[in-house]
Design a binder for these strands. Structure first.
Lengths: 237, 237
DNA sequence: TCAAAAGTGTTCTTATTACACCCATGG
DNA sequence: CCATGGGTGTAATAAGAACACTTTTGA
């Protein structure tokens, strides 16, 4: 049995790439590590999986311990298992991403949330462990997802303008979209409900507010679709 | 340190869904288990990951031990970590799928390949452990992949006919395609090389043989694409 | 009255769909 | 000469791409 035991000298963790959207930027919630290894570095929130805990449950727990949010969209992305990825032993990690509305988020005082904050994905360079690689994989997955289902309503506040929605798509896809074609496409999907309300207190023509139609969204998921909108060619090529 | 040690009483394995294509059917290589648990059941080939082995390396090893094949397409799909998925302890498994040409495959005598054989995906019902669930996830991933890149040449023999290629797509997507539209689309991609050879010994007009253009395929991967061909409406709706 | 973002249609081009008959071979 | 699968083109429709000016508000 000694040979078999050798295999049980390893652990697994879950790391969670928590995406948010604010100020026109795609953001990720990172934690400043307070202990060795990588003390002082920014890292993805994560934890070892308890012996009697499912992987999805662990991912939910990590998210909830950090943000108090429940019923958040969560998706397993990829497992990273490089032999030397963790200095303390063989630890493989299952990466998830989740989508949260930053407006709902309240920092929760907890042991490992001591120094959590939002960072623009575009501006992140170095992370602890192999977390940069994990982040990249999750961003790629998100890009792919956004083309296959409307990802917006998990990231935007309950009421939003079409321009905000467009900026979200532009941030995720890292491109610029044509305003008229975007609106035509989105509205033709019949996923949005016009709230008959407008923005207030803006120094320009106020935009109409919309919300997502949850029922229509369910139908969409069942059918499957491909979202494609032309880039605005002049600004970006 | 005792608390920490508790987490290191677990292991991880890799399970490999090895797809092949033959006789118009999508197939998977399964192994008949010769030992408990699930003795006598069919299972996916898999093994515990060695302490100093990367996940991808383990997946390659499992494939090679079983088939002697190298340089095979391999993709990580999902990790399964249900608390009770393995009767002997906490073992999570990282699922991969691979694509092999059945014509290249030679059964290799090895401890766990004793009873390996190909099974039509459509006809599989019960598998050991949670392997049915794993298989389903890999089939879904394959369906998705085939719409995003030409998957054919990893599964077909070096020379093939357009009808064989179409049948492969139909088997994977589980639908029927329109012959003319399929050919138009495939040929317009310029991925195929006409070998100026024809089938021999068939009791009908012999079909032209093609092979894949590896260079063009690389370009395709770089650009990304979406493969869509209409179903043949009359037979299938 | 200015700045700033909202809102709105049409034309052109390209891709997708539907569909049916003749051809080459072996038995 | 028959059965079997191989091979081929066109017209109709739908989807995507390009593109610029007027409107509403607060400062």
């Amino acid at each position: 049995m000694a040979v078999f035991d050798k295999f049980f000298q390893s652990a697994f963790s879950v790391d969670n790439v928590i995406f948010g959207f604010d100020e026109g930027d795609l953001k990720v919630l990172l934690i400043k590590r307070g202990e060795s290894p990588f003390e002082g570095s920014w890292a993805l929130p994560g934890d070892l999986v308890y012996p009697t805990e499912d992987l999805d449950t662990a991912a939910v727990r990590i998210l909830e311990e950090l943000t108090s949010l429940k019923n958040v969209y969560l998706e397993q992305v990829k497992t990273f298992g490089g032999v030397d990825r963790h200095p303390l032993g063989r630890v493989i990690t299952i990466a998830y991403y989740s989508l949260v509305k930053i407006s709902d988020y309240k920092l929760r005082p907890s042991s490992f949330a001591a120094k959590a904050s939002w960072h623009s994905v575009a501006s992140i360079d170095q992370l602890a462990f192999d977390h940069s690689e994990i982040l990249t994989a999750c961003v790629e997955r998100l890009k792919q997802s956004v083309r296959q289902r409307p990802v917006g309503f998990q990231l935007l506040p309950p009421k939003f303008t079409l321009t905000e929605l467009q900026h979200l798509y532009e941030a995720i896809l890292d491109t610029e979209l044509d305003k008229r074609n975007f609106r035509k496409k989105i509205l033709s999907m019949n996923l949005l409900v016009d709230l008959d309300q407008i923005q207030e207190g803006v120094a320009h023509r106020p935009a109409k507010l919309y919300k997502f139609d949850t029922l229509k969204y369910q139908e969409f998921l069942a059918k499957g679709y491909v979202f494609e909108v032309s880039e605005s060619k002049t600004k970006y090529k």
